[in-house]
């Protein structure tokens, strides 16, 4: 007990010393000066027309594209590690990590089953994939990974979905999945059923974009002024990001599951006699 307390005190002292050292280093190093105004930073956060990054020297892309590729690579590497080191050791009585993985898979699988009882095999996979992407992608901005723009300025990589192209891609892909469910459930007639919800890809895309962008703008604003950069980012940066990572994951996956279930449900034809009677 005494040793534990002693360890805690030493740990705390080490953290405080590190914080003090970092503060001193920051003060001594000084600031290179602002390269852009707050208006410019905000505009670029929305449009990404200035700070673009080269994609393997092939094309200048938005930082969101680089974030998306980084998130995908990180997720695939983590999945490969889990596949090799964790999954073979799965037991009938699960440990913590196994429980976490099973909960993650079970959550989206159950969401697909409950919202689309007729056809849910692919939907479960898609929800798991896109849900993981949105959740991890939103938390990705907390890492504050740096990249260099084509103009040579350093830039912090944002959440992938704060890029309008990524949001549109996710929204339209979700809509395509819904259309595929309609076709699989009802044949060519299902397309008409899905096309009735023509506003869905736009609403899905811009809902995601708006939600993620607002988070990004608030964070940009907070970090732009040095006086706001202490304590406040703990709430704005971490808690808000965690919260809207959960909310956006839930909203997009739930909407996709709901519409998929609705359009993939086989239509029941009423007998002609019954129709005549009703008329």
């Amino acid at each position: 007990m005494k040793q534990r307390k002693l360890g805690l005190v030493f740990g705390l002292a080490a953290v405080l010393l590190l914080a003090a050292a970092l503060l001193a280093a920051a003060l001594l190093a000084g600031s290179p000066g602002r390269t852009e105004s707050v208006q410019g930073a905000m505009r670029d956060a929305v449009l990404h027309d200035v700070n673009q990054i080269s994609l393997f020297g092939l094309k200048a892309v938005t930082p969101g594209m680089i974030s998306a590729l980084t998130v995908t690579a990180a997720l695939l590497i983590a999945a490969a590690c889990l596949r090799v080191f964790v999954i073979p050791k799965f037991r009938y009585t699960p440990g913590r990590l196994q429980l976490l993985l099973e909960e993650a898979v079970g959550l989206f699988d159950n969401m697909a089953r409950s919202n689309s009882p007729h056809r849910n095999r692919f939907l479960g996979l898609y929800l798991f994939s896109v849900g993981t992407y949105i959740f991890i992608g939103t938390l990705f901005e907390l890492l504050g990974l740096q990249a260099v723009t084509v103009a040579g300025h350093p830039i912090t990589l944002p959440a992938p979905l704060s890029d309008v192209n990524a949001a549109i891609a996710t929204g339209t892909l979700s809509y395509l999945v819904i259309v595929s469910g309609a076709v699989a459930g009802n044949g060519p007639k299902g397309v008409l059923k899905a096309l009735k919800e023509f506003s869905l890809p736009i609403s899905m895309s811009f809902r995601l974009f708006g939600a993620l962008l607002s988070g990004l703008l608030v964070t940009e604003l907070v970090y732009y002024y040095v006086s706001l950069s202490f304590v406040l980012p703990v709430v704005v940066g971490v808690l808000f990001t965690l919260l809207h990572a959960l909310v956006q994951t839930y909203v997009l996956t739930m909407l996709t599951a709901l519409y998929y279930g609705e359009v993939s449900e086989p239509s029941h034809k009423e007998p002609k006699k019954l129709q005549a009677k009703k008329a």
């Binding site: 892309v61 938005t62 594209m65 998306a68 590729l69 995908t72 994939s129 896109v130 992407y133 992938p160 890029d163 192209n165 990524a166 549109i168 891609a169 996710t170 339209t172 892909l173």
Partner: peptide
Amino acid sequence: QILLHWMNL
């Protein structure tokens, strides 16, 4: 870039 995001997804 939208197509690239699709491919990525």
